[in-house]
Amino acid sequence: MSNSLPAVAVVGSINLDLIATAERLPTAGETIGGALLSRQPGGKGANQAAAAARLGGRVRMVGAVGEDASGHLMLDALAGAGVDTGDVQLLPEPTGTALIVVDREGENQIVVCPGANSCLSLEGVRFGPDEAVLCQLEVGLPVVLEAARKAPGFFVLNAAPAMDLSAELLERCDLVIVNESEYALIPALASARLVAVTYGGAGSALLEHGRKVAEAPARAVNVVNTIGAGDAFCAALVLALQRGLDYTSALSAANLVGADAVGDPSSQPDLARLGYYLERIAPAVDTR
């Protein structure tokens, strides 16, 4: 098994996260005081790109931000994580923004204002045969389908937020990643080639055409923020599978990465290299 990690192109959203941390989540029409406000780089695409780079992958981001202060902050954050931002477009539209409320248990409510994300174009973008392409659904479905058509290699879709997916898109996916709720909301996934499903504290599983072929337990951790955990899991699973790990080992490593992420208040948490997590699930994994 090669010791180098693969190249990953992440096609997706880049947002400024405005996070209010409160004792509990508000109900409809309710105002809650006493919250703490933070501004952080976010967006599912950017979160996954940052995680993959921090894990040691060779990562480039394909996305769009506004020609505003928030856009430049998002670019600086990605570059600081080790992501190649040469394919991030600067557009007249405002940078995407997510309004997030997080409670003391780490649960959240999120409203996304897509801004420049909704104007992302793949004109002139090319993908290499050795490059995994990772998409989510916070950019337009036509862009995701175009990426699927252009990608000659390993194509992965994090089908979040959940929505109906065309047969063409699902048939092109080498891997779909969802949480338990998203899996239930997209019935077509029951017949998909390979689907990774996360179950929070109950771990994760891989399904081939609806049949469970691997599973791995979660590690009990103190939950601070769940916003970036699923994105860190996605990045780790793609890198582990591309590196040649078997399904169970790949899930186990991705679960450990996700567990580290929920213990960090950031949407783009600091992570160790993937090899660190592989050593923690040894001796089943050869980390040479």
Results as ranks from 00 to 15, higher is better:
144 V>Y: 12
55 L>Y: 05
94 P>K: 11
3 N>H: 15
5 L>M: 09
133 V>Q: 09
129 P>V: 05
74 M>Y: 06
17 D>V: 06
110 I>N: 06
194 L>A: 12
240 A>H: 05
52 A>Q: 00
268 Q>E: 13
231 D>I: 13
18 L>E: 11
248 T>P: 01
286 D>I: 10
128 G>I: 01
54 R>F: 13
189 L>Y: 09
85 T>P: 09
93 E>L: 09
160 A>I: 10
282 A>D: 03
141 L>Y: 14
103 D>F: 11
97 T>E: 11
180 E>G: 07
12 G>Q: 09
163 M>G: 13
78 L>G: 01
271 L>K: 05
225 N>M: 08
83 V>F: 09
200 G>F: 13
193 R>G: 09
220 A>K: 15
100 I>R: 13
22 A>H: 08
83 V>M: 01
288 R>I: 08
254 A>P: 10
138 E>K: 00
85 T>R: 03
223 V>T: 04
176 V>G: 02
162 A>E: 02
258 G>Y: 07
288 R>F: 13
106 G>K: 07
12 G>L: 06
269 P>A: 01
58 R>T: 11
123 E>W: 03
258 G>D: 07
95 T>P: 00
278 L>Q: 10
283 P>G: 12
259 A>T: 00
4 S>Y: 15
34 G>D: 12
278 L>C: 09
215 E>S: 15
154 F>G: 04
155 F>E: 01
194 L>Y: 00
204 S>K: 08
49 A>W: 13
274 L>Q: 03
278 L>S: 08
40 Q>Y: 00
73 L>H: 14
21 T>G: 12
238 V>I: 03
184 A>M: 03
257 V>G: 03
98 A>N: 12
270 D>R: 14
219 R>E: 14
261 A>C: 04
145 L>T: 09
87 D>P: 10
27 T>A: 15
191 S>V: 14
194 L>E: 07
65 V>C: 15
271 L>R: 04
214 A>E: 07
144 V>A: 12
20 A>C: 13
230 G>T: 02
65 V>D: 14
48 Q>R: 07
178 V>M: 03
94 P>E: 00
222 N>P: 11
51 A>C: 14
42 G>E: 06
264 D>Q: 01
58 R>I: 06
207 L>M: 04
82 G>T: 02
18 L>P: 00
142 P>E: 12
147 A>D: 05
235 A>T: 07
272 A>T: 10
70 S>N: 11
84 D>R: 04
58 R>W: 03
183 Y>M: 06
252 S>D: 11
170 L>D: 08
247 Y>M: 08
136 Q>L: 06
191 S>N: 15
279 E>Y: 07
163 M>S: 14
69 A>F: 00
241 L>F: 05
229 A>I: 13
210 G>T: 02
49 A>Y: 12
173 C>P: 00
189 L>H: 04
122 L>Y: 04
287 T>R: 15
198 T>C: 08
122 L>H: 06
213 V>W: 05
7 A>N: 11
104 R>C: 08
224 V>A: 06
48 Q>I: 03
52 A>H: 00
115 G>T: 10
